[in-house]
Design a protein around this nucleic acid. Structure first.
Length: 425
DNA sequence: TCTGGGGTCCTAGGACCC
DNA sequence: TCTGGGGTCCTAGGACCC
């Protein structure tokens, strides 16, 4: 059996942890640049705030219900996420935990007798909540997909389930599948859901009853076959090893407001490159190819028009993880993409052709300067990581940074900065 | 006029996830 | 006026090779 442990309204819970007066009050958290609503407390959901909708569209409903608004504070969420995951690793054993996202983890419970699953789930829930202050929901079932389904049911009616649902028998699974619409099944997105509704397939159970060749043909080949197995209790998505190395590393951002001067765009791209290189070094990799794109801020021609994207890439003579070696080609690409007189609203950097970094330790065969650069990178990463912020940066990244995103409702970094520490009076 | 068979690698695009 | 960011996997199709 597998469990999925999912933090309830994670970003909102993090904010409320340090603002106890907001407990039982409606709260929302915004995406980068204060663009969309990405997390809502239960009270905000009841008030009718839609998920993933633009912030400005909900302003009136937010004012009406006196809803607390926060810009996203990734320093805070990252730190609390780490605490939750550490707790799970301590309870279940490191090798049985797969961190799936910032607020979710799968836990392998195959060693636990079926009878004891509800008790264990309760224990996990209580421990995480006692140790971190973050409430969680838990779904348990034989496969990852059914565990996600169990978790969906646990969250849907928190009072009835106590935020825990175990689907151990086929009868329980059948009932759950029958009462769940397709779009809420893990692995069925909007495009497939519409297609299936038009074919007269509505519930998870309908889908689980289709033949394999049909799933292969209509649901994306082997992806569909795997989904069918998972729905029928046969694991097709295994627990994954921790520390899988990413194959693409991207850092992309909207600007706070449209930007026209090339100096700012160079700064932004240099900054994104630094961040991407940092992610690269964290997984002990080096990249061979860097691509850069900019998105123009053009007039809207239709609803779905998001402006023209211009991109180019550069393949390095050898894979590297050194920020300075990546910034140089990145800025050269900016210079070829940039058109004077144009306004831009977004830029991004992508690193690919990722290979293990073989110069992590001082390398006898490299010139001494290379080994110094490696030490320099390590030092920069250590300082920036301990502060959870860019204390040290390359000059190309700029100091004024007037292209930076808007964060008009940001909360303090309570847990990662001494001078922003939560105070008890 | 007639034009093989089998393979690899790469890229773009579509679907999905949180 | 104002709509995020960062990933994954898979397939199809083209280029190229012998």
């Amino acid at each position: 059996m597998k469990a999925i442990i999912d933090c309830n309204n994670f970003y909102c819970s993090c904010e409320r942890l340090f603002r106890p007066e907001l407990r039982n009050k409606p709260v929302v958290v915004l995406s980068n640049n204060d663009g969309c609503i990405v997390s809502r407390s239960d009270e905000a959901k009841y008030a009718g705030v839609p998920m993933a909708a633009p912030f400005f569209e909900s302003r009136s409903i937010i004012a009406l219900h006196d809803i607390a608004v926060f810009s996203s504070n990734y320093n805070l969420y990252g730190d609390l996420s780490w605490r939750v995951m550490e707790t799970l690793r301590m309870i279940a054993g490191k090798e049985n935990v797969e961190v799936y996202s910032v607020d979710e983890a799968f836990v392998d419970l195959s060693a636990v007798p079926v009878k004891e699953l509800p008790t264990i789930a309760k224990k996990i829930k209580k421990t995480v909540e006692d140790w971190t202050g973050i409430s969680v929901s838990i779904g348990v079932a034989p496969t990852k997909t059914l565990a996600k389904l169990a978790n969906y049911i646990a969250k849907k009616d928190k009072k009835a389930t106590g935020c825990i649902t175990v689907l151990a028998t086929r009868q329980e699974q059948q009932k759950a599948l029958q009462q769940t619409r397709l779009a809420n099944i893990w692995g069925v997105g909007g495009a497939y859901a519409n297609k299936l509704y038009n074919m007269g397939i509505f519930s998870g159970w309908d889908l689980a009853s289709m033949p394999d060749y049909w799933m292969y043909k209509n649901m994306g080949g082997v992806v569909g076959s795997r989904l069918l197995k998972e729905l029928n209790g046969e694991p097709a998505k295994d627990m994954e090893e921790e520390l899988v190395t990413k194959k693409v590393i991207a850092t992309t951002r909207m600007f706070g407001s449209p930007v026209g001067d090339i100096a700012s765009i160079r700064e932004a791209v240099a900054t994104y490159t630094s961040r991407a290189a940092e992610k690269l070094r964290r997984q002990h990799s080096a990249a061979k190819t860097i691509s850069v794109f900019v998105v123009a801020n053009e007039e809207n021609h239709n609803v779905n028009y998001h402006g023209a994207t211009h991109s180019d890439s550069f393949t390095l003579p050898a894979a590297t993880s050194f920020t300075n070696e990546l910034i140089k080609p990145a800025i050269e690409i900016v210079d070829t993409l940039y058109k004077p007189g144009m306004l831009y609203k977004k830029a991004g950097v992508m690193l690919s052709g990722i290979v293990p970094d073989n110069s992590i330790q001082a390398n006898l065969f490299l010139p001494e300067t290379k080994n110094c650069e490696r030490k320099l990178m390590d030092m920069i990463d250590n300082v920036n990581f301990s502060q959870r912020d860019d204390v040290l940066k390359f000059a190309a990244s700029g100091t004024v940074r007037n292209w930076k995103m808007q964060q008009n409702h940001i909360s303090p970094r309570y847990t990662t900065r001494w001078n922003e520490l939560y105070e008890v009076s």
